[in-house]
Design a binder for these strands. Structure first.
Lengths: 254, 254
DNA sequence: ATCGTTGTTTTGTGATCACAGAATGTCAAT
DNA sequence: ATTGACATTCTGTGATCACAAAACAACGAT
């Protein structure tokens, strides 16, 4: 996984950075900056960015810089309408195909999420949550569906992770995971789907609330450099976003 | 639409060629060939191909030529599972949002399809069919969903169109379109979804049958150059696939 | 003080070149 | 005749260069 094409590694790195919310919404990713940060030529960076644009993870108008799309209420609604449909389908398909080992892993993830919630360790919770859903959907025997779901995650990621790190959640969203596990044991595919859909709906409602809050209070602190309309005139200096990457930046040459 | 970036124009051209089934499944698209066919440098072609790979319309292993993926039963199943879910969702969402003009267009398309069927004009039928579904889904007020559906069409396209041009269809799949229109008038979203799903299922079942037939009879004539396993040793001469394009090939220079 | 204008810099895009890995084609040995 | 190794060609990938459009900043007019 570490080898392969340079552009594919850059793609993976950018993808992970996006999922971790290491880029500000609205932030412009400039080819030459990233290239110098990685110590490569602009070429593979260009390819990686174009691929992310093709997947909808980044937005780029014809002749302008590529930006990470800010989350709006409209986009959020669209995203969750599709997520509900697709992840529900994956869950339903996965039910009859899930193996004993997979089910064991799922329950282990639920346990870890419980523990993380009690420790108020959001980071670990989110990681276990991702693994839970991925392991569940992974059993659906439909790689195409899986790819689509992952591309959707990539589009929510930047917004999702950023908000969750700030928010203290006294809410219990692990109940739906437990419910899903029970339904999996029963073999009730509809119930599995319903549990996953409820999980998504619950989580989505919470995030929508946070989004509304952030929209009302337009960046009181240094955060959120760009609003929904047009990006503010904050000019980013070269190499600024380099710190957001894994910094494999081999000895800034030049 | 005709202007914009070179790579975007190439992308659109390739996309259309793919939708029209002008490329053989399994055929390898080589950068330099397409570039010389268009009279451009290999660079924008590379970008366009990579974008199509990112969307799943083409498949490409790391260091080898990009190919149009052959349709297999597994892939077909995966594709239609997702299509059913997504297009059903789009139809359901579109129902309460469809305008009077859109509905008029939909019924006009149905009429045209009827006429085309009686004339056994498959070409016109397919075009009207595309317009019908696109117009319906277009009312769903979810551009993201629309993009996903179009990318799915792009993946079925090469297979879909090729088979339909060969097959004489005495089947009546216009009934579901009519049913959808009636449900739209009633405002019964579930019924609209059901009609569209039935349409897809019916069409999919037919195509699956043809696929099975083609799989059993492995290319008795000159068609189908490559099978599912490994591509045959048919070595394509440069410029062969150029005829499949719009041939904007400006005076082969050199 | 604000807005329109102009000159400079930045930044994406396309072309050409260079390199490495894969595929193919040839030839010799069994 | 088939199979193995070897040489050649092809093809994707990355680097560097050149150009045009967009963004930015400074300036001048109202």
């Amino acid at each position: 996984m570490a080898d392969a094409n340079l552009q594919q590694r850059l793609y993976q790195a950018l993808r992970q950075a996006l999922l971790d919310g290491r880029f500000q919404p609205g932030e412009a990713l400039k080819i030459r900056d990233l290239a110098s940060a990685w110590g490569t030529s602009p070429m593979p960076v260009r390819a990686a960015l174009q691929r992310l644009v093709a997947e909808g993870a980044l937005e780029g108008e014809p002749q302008r810089s590529v930006r990470v799309p800010p989350m709006t209420e409209a986009r959020f609604r669209q995203l969750f309408e599709v997520r509900l449909s697709l992840e529900g389908l994956a869950a339903e398909l996965a039910c009859p195909r899930v193996t004993a080992e997979a089910l064991a892993q799922l329950e282990a993830e639920v346990a870890e999420m419980d523990a993380a919630l009690q420790r108020r360790d959001i980071r670990t919770y989110l990681a276990a949550n991702s693994r839970f859903h991925l392991a569940l959907y992974g059993a659906c025997d439909n790689p195409l569906l899986l790819r689509l779901i992952e591309s959707l995650w990539l589009q929510v990621g930047p917004f999702f992770n950023r908000l969750f790190t700030e928010a203290d959640l006294n809410l219990r969203l692990n109940g739906f995971h437990d419910e899903a596990c029970r339904a999996l044991r029963t073999g009730d595919a509809r119930a599995v789907r319903h549990a996953v859909e409820q999980d998504l709906r619950y989580c989505g409602q919470y995030l929508a609330g946070l989004l509304r809050l952030e929209a009302d209070a337009p960046a009181r602190k240094s955060g959120a450099a760009a609003r929904a309309g047009r990006g503010a005139s904050t000019r980013t200096r070269p190499g600024q976003s380099a710190s957001a990457l894994g910094i494999p930046s081999r000895a800034a040459r030049g």
